Simulated assay, not measured.
Amino acid sequence: MQGKQLRKLEAELWRAADQLRANSKLTASEYSMPVLGLIFLRHAYNRFQKVKIEVEKDLPVHPQRGRRLVTKKDFEERNAMFLPEKSQFDYLVALPESADTGEAIDNAMKLIEDEYDNLKGVLPKNFSIFSKDLLRELLRIFNKEVLQKAEGDLFGKIYEYFLNKKRKAIKY
C-alpha cells in the first residue's frame, strides 16, 4: 500500500472514530479502545485466514475419515491465533440486522480471552454501549477490501496512527 492510500485509509478510519465519539459522548481515551479493538480483531482474523489455508493444505487425508479438522494447536505451531467461529470478523459482519452487534463483539473478545490466558482482561468488552447502527458501520469500514488483504506492517501503522491521534486528542 502506497503512502497516499495509507493516509486516505487512516483518515477514513479516524472519521469513523469521530463518528463513534460524536454519537457516544465519550472522550478520546474512551472511544479509542473499541476502535483499536476492532483493528485487533481485523488483524487477528486476517492472520487466522492466511494460516488456516496453509494448515488445511498440509493436513493429511485419511481414506475413510477424510481430512481431520483444524485445531488450535495447528495455529499455535505457526505462531498464529486460533479464533473461535463467533470471534471471526466475517461472522460479525454477517450478523443479521436484528442482532445485538455490541453484545456479539463483546462476546467475540471474551471468547478470544477464554482461549488465551495472556489476553484475559486486556481486550475491550464495552461495545454494548454503542448503537447497533454505529457498530455495523464500523464493521463495514473495517471490512473494506484493502483491510481484508492487509498484513502486519499495515496494521502496525494504523495502530500507531490511532495511538498518536488519541494522544493529541487527549491533550486538547
Results as ranks from 00 to 15, higher is better:
Lys4Tyr: 07
Gln5Arg: 11
Gln5Ala: 13
Leu6Pro: 01
Arg7Ala: 13
Leu9Gln: 01
Leu9Met: 11
Arg15Trp: 05
Ala16Gly: 15
Ala16Arg: 09
Ala17Ser: 12
Asp18Glu: 15
Ala22Val: 08
Ser24Trp: 05
Ala28His: 07
Glu30Trp: 01
Ser32Pro: 00
Gly37Met: 07
Gly37Lys: 07
Ile39Glu: 05
Ile39Leu: 15
Asn46Val: 15
Arg47Phe: 08
Ile53Lys: 14
Glu54Thr: 09
Glu54Phe: 01
Val55Thr: 02
Glu56Gln: 13
Leu59Met: 06
Pro63Met: 07
Arg65Ser: 09
Thr71Met: 11
Glu77Phe: 03
Ala80His: 04
Phe82Pro: 03
Leu83Gln: 07
Ser87Arg: 07
Ser87Tyr: 07
Gln88Arg: 15
Asp90Arg: 12
Asp100Arg: 04
Asp100Thr: 02
Asp100Gly: 01
Gly102Gln: 04
Glu103Ala: 08
Ala104Phe: 00
Ile105Gly: 02
Ala108Gly: 02
Met109Arg: 02
Leu111Cys: 03
Ile112His: 03
Glu113Asp: 06
Glu115Tyr: 06
Asn118Trp: 09
Leu119Thr: 12
Lys120Ser: 09
Lys120Ala: 08
Gly121Arg: 08
Lys125Gly: 11
Phe127Leu: 10
Ser128Leu: 12
Lys132Ala: 14
Asp133Thr: 15
Glu137Trp: 01
Leu139Cys: 06
Leu139Pro: 01
Phe142Thr: 04
Glu145Phe: 02
Leu147Gln: 05
Gly152Thr: 14
Asp153Ile: 13
Leu154Gln: 12
Lys168Val: 15
Lys168His: 09
Lys168Ala: 15
Lys171Trp: 05
Tyr172Met: 10
Tyr172Phe: 06
